[in-house]
Simulated assay, not measured.
Amino acid sequence: MGYEGHEGQGRPSDVLVRCSRDPAVAIRLSGRRIDDDETVFSVEATADGLGGHVELGWSMRPGLGMEATWEVSATTWIEAGQQLTTLASDVRAFLARP
């Protein structure tokens, strides 16, 4: 894997990790925002032949500081493109602070 680091000093811009065997395969981290208790950023994956669906893993555990005595997980699949864009917008609106 290759790595293209930060641009300039100060706050890092995008981070791009590119496969050295196939430069068309890459992961980009971008748009980092840090709030009181969270860090938010976007992850973009690119590769030739990526399927038209995205797999999302959802997990629920006890709150922070509590012993992890249980966990519930589920996987959902949605179509890439407009359905994924709509879901991202809906989740962003749902999680927005008032």
Rank of each mutant, 00 (worst) to 15 (best):
D14Q: 11
D35I: 05
L95T: 04
T85C: 02
L87D: 05
G5S: 06
V72T: 05
A88N: 11
E38L: 07
V43M: 00
V25L: 10
Q83G: 00
L50E: 04
R32A: 12
G2N: 13
A88T: 10
L29Q: 07
E55M: 07
T46W: 10
Q9N: 12
V91K: 00
I27Q: 02
A93M: 11
V17W: 12
E79D: 13
S30W: 05
G10D: 09
S59D: 09
A68T: 15
R33K: 07
G65I: 04
R33W: 10
R11Y: 09
E7D: 11
L95H: 02
T39C: 04
A80W: 04
R97E: 06
D35W: 06
S13Q: 13
D48N: 02
R97Q: 07
L87H: 01
L29D: 02
T76G: 14
G49P: 02
L87V: 05
A26W: 04
T86G: 00
E38C: 06
L95G: 03
Y3E: 08
L50F: 01
S13Y: 08
R18I: 15
F94D: 13
Y3N: 06
P23W: 05
P98E: 07
Q82H: 12
A68F: 05
T75H: 04
G5T: 15
A24R: 00
R11E: 15
V54P: 01
Q83H: 08
R32M: 14
G8Y: 02
T86E: 12
A24L: 12
V17H: 06
D37K: 09
W58P: 00
R18C: 06
D37S: 08
E79W: 07
R97D: 09
M1E: 14
W77H: 05
L64W: 12
P23I: 03
W70V: 07
E71L: 11
P23S: 06
G49T: 00
E7N: 11
T85V: 13
C19E: 09
L29A: 03
G10N: 05
Y3V: 06
E79F: 02
H6T: 12
F94K: 05
L64M: 10
A24P: 01
R21Q: 14
D22V: 04
A24M: 03
E38W: 09
L56E: 02
G51R: 03
S30G: 08
L64V: 00
L95I: 01
R61F: 14
Q82F: 15
D90T: 13
M66R: 11
W77K: 10
I27V: 13
I34C: 02
E55R: 13
W77G: 08
V43K: 01
F94I: 12
A47Q: 01
T85P: 01
R28Y: 09
A26D: 08
M1C: 08
R92P: 01
D14W: 14
E38N: 04
A80D: 13
G49Y: 02
Y3F: 15
R33C: 10
G65R: 00
M66C: 03
P98A: 08
A24H: 03
Q82D: 12
S89H: 08
C19H: 06
P12R: 03
E55A: 09
